[in-house]
């Protein structure tokens, strides 16, 4: 099984700013890996180091046994990268954008033309094939760049926030495109859309202030948090006794109770008896994310006492 291995990867910018702090992990280099984390967490830094664009301060990393620092040349034959802040070059058309990128990858001009046309068709951008990039909308420009790395056919793809700024339909289209790659490609993706990570990723990593806080399949990281279940009740303002768990009143008027499997079981029995309408789900990535990197605004740890709302 091909693997991505990081050991004690550390990046200090300039003299002080520690953006990555001894990050160590290993994951299969196959399928989709989503890296999430708050703004400034170090996602781009990690992505750029693995994509051979940035030197780490210390530590090591390898993909399929190829060292990203010392053997970057070999790795570059296999990877295609969409940097977070990439913009389609203003004076090129989408078609020229893809063609020239493929040429940098060593593909001949006529072959590159064919691949570009097919990538434009697949991303539903063929209508704009010959429009100057500077005349495209922000989301269209982003889509062109995603199409560009997809056209590369590289077995390993790094995409740093590929769907930021896209409408829901375009985003779903790109999700489909990424899903198609799952079987025989490795996609390393960062995102602020937790739904995107949840839907696409085989594995998720949560980075916080330069440290890797959680890593694994969704089920695996769910086990890392205290409460695995989420119960939602609309507008239930009177006291609900929760032995073990966390209650949050959301702005949407729903009361959310995060709790353990056992307590969820007990609560749902009680709600059914009391004819209280509720929904129960395993905690979402969003809940996990919150509980790992930040406490939500209004919350109370259940302590068995009667509580007023």
């Amino acid at each position: 099984m091909p693997e991505l291995i990081c050991s004690n990867l550390t990046k200090t910018y300039g003299k002080g700013m520690k953006a990555l702090d001894k990050v160590s992990f290993s994951i299969p280099a196959l399928g989709i890996f989503a890296l999430i984390g708050r703004t400034g967490a170090g996602k781009t830094t990690l992505t750029r180091i693995l994509a051979t664009e940035l030197m780490p301060t210390s530590g090591a990393a390898s993909i399929n046994g190829i060292d990203v620092v010392n053997n970057a040349g070999r790795l570059r034959d296999m990877i295609a990268v969409l940097p977070q802040e990439s913009r389609a070059v203003a004076w090129l058309t989408p078609r020229q954008t893809i063609i020239t990128y493929l040429m940098y990858r060593g593909v001949g001009f006529s072959e590159a033309k064919k691949k570009a046309d097919s990538a434009l068709r697949k991303t539903d951008m063929d209508r704009f094939a010959n429009t100057l990039n500077e005349k495209l909308s922000g989301g269209q420009k982003r889509k062109i760049l995603v199409a560009t790395v997809l056209a590369s056919g590289a077995p390993i793809i790094f995409v740093d926030e590929p769907t930021t700024g896209l409408d829901p339909i375009s985003r779903a289209e790109l999700w489909e495109a990424f899903k198609m790659l799952k079987k025989d490609h490795f996609v390393f993706l960062t995102t602020h859309y937790l739904e995107e990570a949840e839907r696409l990723a085989d594995r998720v990593g949560i980075l916080h202030e330069g440290k890797l806080m959680a890593l694994g399949t969704l089920d695996e990281i769910r086990k890392l948090v205290k409460y695995q279940y989420s119960i939602r009740i609309l507008g239930k303002k009177d006291g609900i006794k929760v032995k073990e768990g966390k209650k949050t009143l959301g702005e949407d008027g729903y009361l959310q109770i995060m709790t353990t499997e056992k307590e969820a079981d007990a609560l749902s029995r009680r709600f059914i008896k009391g004819k209280i309408r509720f929904s129960i789900n395993p905690v979402s990535l969003e809940d996990i994310f919150y509980s790992i990197v930040k406490k939500p605004i209004r919350e109370e740890e259940g302590n068995g006492k009667q509580e007023e709302w």
Partner: peptide, 15 residues
């Protein structure tokens, strides 16, 4: 700086 082309090329086979 403005298009991040260098990053895309650095990570490609082009030296």
């Amino acid at each position: 700086n403005d298009f991040k082309l260098q990053d895309m090329v650095v990570s490609s086979p082009t030296s």
